[in-house]
Amino acid sequence: MRMRQTMRWFGPSDPVSLRDIRQAGCSGVVSALHAIPNGEVWPVEAIRERQALIEAAGMTWDVVESLPVSEAIKTAGPERDAHVAAYRESLTNLAECGIRVITYNFMPVLDWTRTDLGWELPTGAKALRFELDAVAAYDVHMLRRAGAEAAYDAATLERAAARFAGMDEGERTALERTIIAGLPGSEEGFTTADFAQALSAYAGIDAERLAEHHLAFLRDVCPHADALGVQLVVHPDDPPMPLFGLPRVVSTAADLDRLFAAVPNVSNGLCLCTGSLGVRPDNDLPAMVERFGSRIGFLHLRNVAADAPGAFHEAEHLDGQVDMVAVVQAVHRLSVAEGRSIPMRPDHGHQMLDDLGKSGSNPGYTAIGRLRGLAELRGLERGVEALSKA
């Protein structure tokens, strides 16, 4: 059984068209209704409308990414129960439309975070990059979060101060926008004042409490998901470390062990993102494929490479600190053992070739960079398959 090849599509306004995705060799699409505010129900009519567009292009809507978990649920705020009820209703409507893999994350306030959306590689292509020094420069010198200095070591604080001092106003604004103004797949954007207010909602919520809120959410929705035959797959923290005083609770194999032990429902699953988990050298990705097995309902295959203290960039799909050959071998063994084709998408491609001159492309989601990644992963999988039969 081979992985089911998909790409993410952000809807009719996405500069990468469904036609482009079909030509890349995909049979499936990963999409979401980003226009619907967090905490509200996804109506059947809106789901079917998006589904019809995808099917008219000759593909199927295989995975939802994402059905957002609201901040009220994450903080156990006053609207929490109403938002959980809406979430269950959205799951019902998705199942009615035949969509049964639903991605979500439990990252507080911010979705995936980067500090540079166009870091130039030696080839002239551009990649996404995360730099802790830049985060500290923003946190300490621009956001001026109370107690921020305690989150960083002395060397990082020194580099961050120098970094901030060397930035002009335009560079500071660009950094602010990159970190907090919203990214593809992020349903909310902020100003610095908004961000500070959002952070205040997490005062007193440490990692243990956030993890309990996560388990409470799953205990409320998984029995319903079980009955519907849908799988909720959690996306790991990206990057897998606390940021801006916010805890992270889906960063390691131990975090996932706790999650699945506490809520053993069959619908409680994992989106295995090799880039997010692969930032941490203590995460053994092939072993995690083996360990979590049938919990894995969706795969994000991408690679990362450290390039400075506390910094990493999105590397070529087969060339980084993730052993992608071993990961695909483990996925192949899992697929054969369980007789299923797991949806996969190439994640966070480089901006390259003609895409360098195009405006409006979503960072990490250009056509050609993902096409290259998919082609490499497709070839790798065919090679692994052939060797397994030799």
Rank of each mutant, 00 (worst) to 15 (best):
D220C: 04
F164H: 13
L183Q: 10
A148P: 10
Q231M: 09
A148Y: 03
A162D: 09
D226E: 08
A216S: 14
D206N: 10
M167E: 09
E208I: 03
D220Y: 00
L228I: 03
R177P: 06
D226W: 07
R163H: 13
R145V: 02
V221T: 11
C222R: 09
I205A: 04
A154E: 13
M167Q: 13
I180C: 04
A181S: 15
Q197L: 09
L210K: 14
L215K: 08
G166I: 04
E188C: 11
L218W: 06
R177L: 02
A151P: 01
A196E: 11
Y202W: 09
V233G: 10
E212R: 14
A193W: 04
R159N: 13
E176P: 04
D153A: 01
D220W: 00
F190W: 13
A201L: 15
V221L: 08
T178M: 02
A148T: 00
V230N: 06
A227V: 01
E176A: 10
E171Q: 15
E212P: 05
L232C: 07
F217V: 00
R163E: 09
R159M: 04
A162Q: 11
F217Y: 06
F164T: 00
P184A: 12
F164E: 08
L210Q: 13
T178F: 07
E171C: 09
M167K: 14
R177N: 09
R159V: 02
V221G: 00
R144C: 04
E208P: 05
E158R: 15
A165Q: 12
P223Y: 09
L218P: 03
G204E: 10
R159E: 15
A211H: 13
T173G: 08
Q197E: 14
D206P: 06
S200R: 15
A150G: 02
T191C: 10
F190H: 14
A193D: 13
F195H: 06
Q197Y: 03
V221R: 12
A160I: 08
E188Q: 15
E187D: 07
D226Y: 13
P184V: 01
T173S: 12
A198N: 08
V233M: 03
A198S: 13
F195V: 07
I179G: 03
R159C: 04
D153E: 07
G182P: 11
D220K: 09
R159Q: 11
G147K: 05
V233I: 14
E208G: 11
L175R: 06
A207L: 05
